[in-house]
Design a protein around this nucleic acid. Structure first.
Ligand SMILES: [Mn+2]
Ligand SMILES: [Mn+2]
Ligand SMILES: [Zn+2]
Ligand SMILES: [Zn+2]
Lengths: 152, 152
DNA sequence: TTTCTTTCTAACAATCGTTGCAGTTTGAGG
DNA sequence: CCTCAAACTGCAACGATTGTTAGAAAGAAA
């Protein structure tokens, strides 16, 4: 089990990448890049929207989805489907895992390699495995406390 | 890494469980139990509906969702959210993991314990972990072949 | 700077999976 | 058989996401 560090691309880097792809640099996009950069809690499209809207009230939710999808398909952000209702976007590109609160939906990064987790060819049945995701599910301290209080 | 076997409850067992809970045994429920019992491919509510409808054309999709939710909250089936668009239900109660085709959505069981996958208290941050899910993502043989054919 | 081409945005409608609701039906105990 | 709480059906509503498109804006070229 080895420990690593997070790696999030800066707005400037993302801007440069978009430029290289021949995509235009709009204030909407730059604003989204900025919001992603200092959001470490796996925001939903809606929550990115809410934050961007504070400095750009006219932006549309559609544009946020569009840009997040673009970034995801360029491989510049990750997208997590954890059964919390909506997709969560992850600007942290380092391969890592997640700890999820099933009660409130909080998502925390786990920076660790589990070298043991590899499938023997026998179990692969011809599959080509591109990624291995580990999700630890449970209850965060806040939700545990709240539950205890309710049971008292 | 230890290997195990699948464990799926029979229609009779589920019927008995419902009876114990004071829930009524309706033909709709029994039919759904049967369909689940011999469905090893993690069906969606819609696909359970389609199958049940063959022998009971008047059943409503609403009832299928209702019964699947009941079973899931009784802990008698699992529910997977894998980002394939809709929830997948899993009658196999043994703790196990999954191999998912990101192209066609196929889901295959992986019966193996990865004993290495345990979080040191230091990383838990006070979380109470109830379950650890491992998802291997990639491409199934069919989809790989189809992709190769397209690239030729 | 002005023009021209291309891409993007905003607004709105539509879709998909799922759940809420209301009225009707039915399983199961008496 | 009755009774009646519980379950069923059909449909409306909902939240998340995507399709469409006319007009706006960015960037390149002149
Ligand atoms: Mn993460
Ligand atoms: Mn399974
Ligand atoms: Zn929580
Ligand atoms: Zn496939």
């Amino acid at each position: 089990m080895t420990v690593r560090l997070p790696a999030v691309k800066s707005p400037a880097e993302l801007t440069e990448l978009f430029r290289q792809e021949g995509l235009k640099i709009t204030p909407q996009r730059v604003s989204i890049f900025r919001v992603l950069h200092d959001n470490l809690d796996h925001p939903t499209a809606e929550s990115v929207y809410d934050t961007v809207r504070q400095e750009m009230p006219s932006i549309s939710l559609r544009t946020v989805y569009q840009t997040l999808n673009d970034l995801a398909s360029m491989g510049e952000i990750g997208q997590l489907d954890l059964g919390t209702g909506s997709a969560r976007f992850d600007p942290n590109l380092d391969s890592h895992h997640h700890l999820v609160c099933d009660t409130c939906g909080k998502v925390i990064d786990i920076y660790a390699d589990f070298d043991d987790v590899r499938l023997p060819r026998r179990q692969l049945q011809g599959f080509r495995v591109a990624a291995t995701e580990i999700v630890f599910r449970g209850q965060c301290p806040d939700c545990s406390a709240r539950a205890d209080r309710a049971t008292r």
